[in-house]
């Protein structure tokens, strides 16, 4: 499989860009510890966009990158934006268990392919090992299930016509798939909802098992979902994110007031990032009205109310650049 960074220039994906800024905003609201004491763990492409943002927006300087493409080691090392990034080459199977998890971390496992057993085991490991106060984010491709080893094509090839439920069982193990699930439940955006449910089930089961052997109630772990994002720059993607903390830290969680953020989602209803296609001039004009409720803005009558609303919800997170080589 070709690494996805060879196919897509990550800087040009507007929804992805918005997602990164959203995550940085959540990072800025973490109240468990001083944000400068956090470590960022990511699966950076050679563009390292998330690393640059975590440093610039939050001031995090302890950073660790996991990269499976060992063959491109030279290229990665050369593109590293900060010399102090700890570059680890290998798969998450091998690297994640070897890391020291005593410091609070922001971990973003931004996989570009579909959900799989190893990814669910990564989630299990982080939920058990990550230091309390950590922010954990998992992004996966949310297209309908494709049998492992086969690429899913957008238009119906052999793989996409085969039964989605069978493919899902092969991806995540049959015990994780609800027997009442039908092929139709995995079409379009519904697949992402099923993936989120499976990921959440793993988090809950892992926490239940871990907490069952912790005798002090205040040390028991809690997971609070903050993000449930869907977007589609190219392929459909979903990001599940939340914080992990001990019961004694409930106050610090509440102090973050994450529920005040417009994109906060603690349930199965996803926040869909849809970027309206507006001109720079239109964007600039609409921004004058951002303090109004989107329903009260009636300027630029050629735009649909939906486009206006989408822009005004998202403008803080959208890229406003023109292509320029520097």
């Amino acid at each position: 499989m070709t690494a996805s960074y060879k196919k897509i220039d990550y800087r040009l994906r507007p929804a992805k860009h918005a997602e990164r800024l959203i995550i940085a905003e959540i990072g800025g609201r973490l109240r468990f510890f001083d944000i400068h004491s956090y470590r960022y763990v990511g699966l950076g492409s050679p563009y390292f966009a998330d690393f640059k943002l975590m440093h610039r927006a939050l001031g995090i300087s302890s950073m660790l990158n996991i990269e499976a493409m060992e063959r491109d080691r030279e290229r990665f090392n050369w593109n590293m934006p900060y010399a102090t990034i700890d570059m680890r080459y290998g798969t998450t199977d091998t690297i994640l268990p070897a890391l020291d998890w005593t410091m609070p971390s922001i971990v973003w496992l931004d996989y570009d392919d579909q959900l799989s057993q190893p990814k669910l085991l990564d989630i299990d490991l982080l939920v058990r090992r990550a230091a309390p106060g950590s922010l954990l984010l998992f992004s996966v491709n949310a297209e309908p299930p494709a049998p492992p080893g086969q690429r899913r094509n957008a238009s119906g090839d052999e793989a996409s016509r085969s039964d989605f439920v069978e493919a899902l069982r092969a991806m995540v193990g049959k015990d994780r798939v609800d027997p009442s699930l039908k092929h139709e439940d995995l079409q379009g955006w519904s697949a992402g909802r099923v993936y989120r449910r499976i990921m959440t089930a793993v988090i809950e089961a892992t926490l239940a098992a871990a907490n069952a052997v912790i005798t002090q109630a205040e040390r028991r772990r809690r997971w609070r979902q903050i993000l449930n994002i869907e977007y589609k720059d190219g392929a459909r993607m979903l990001t599940l994110g939340g914080v992990l903390y001990e019961e004694s830290q409930e106050g610090a969680y509440l102090a973050g007031a994450f529920e005040k953020l417009s994109f906060f989602r603690d349930d199965a209803t996803a926040y869909r990032i849809e970027v309206p296609r507006l001109t720079l001039k239109e964007m600039a004009h609409l921004e004058r009205s951002v303090m109004h409720s989107p329903d009260e803005v009636h300027e630029l009558p050629w735009l649909t109310p939906k486009e206006r609303r989408q822009y005004l919800q998202l403008y803080r997170y959208l890229p406003n650049f023109v292509p320029a080589e520097i």
Binding site: D93, T94, P97, A98, L121, D124, R128, A209, A212, V213
Partner: peptide, 21 residues
């Protein structure tokens, strides 16, 4: 058994790098 429920997860975590190897 609650101990084993947790231990099994430790075992899985520890065996993954070996299987990868």
């Amino acid at each position: 058994a609650t101990i084993y429920q947790d231990a099994r997860r430790e075992m899985i975590t520890m065996m993954r790098p070996v299987i990868d190897f």
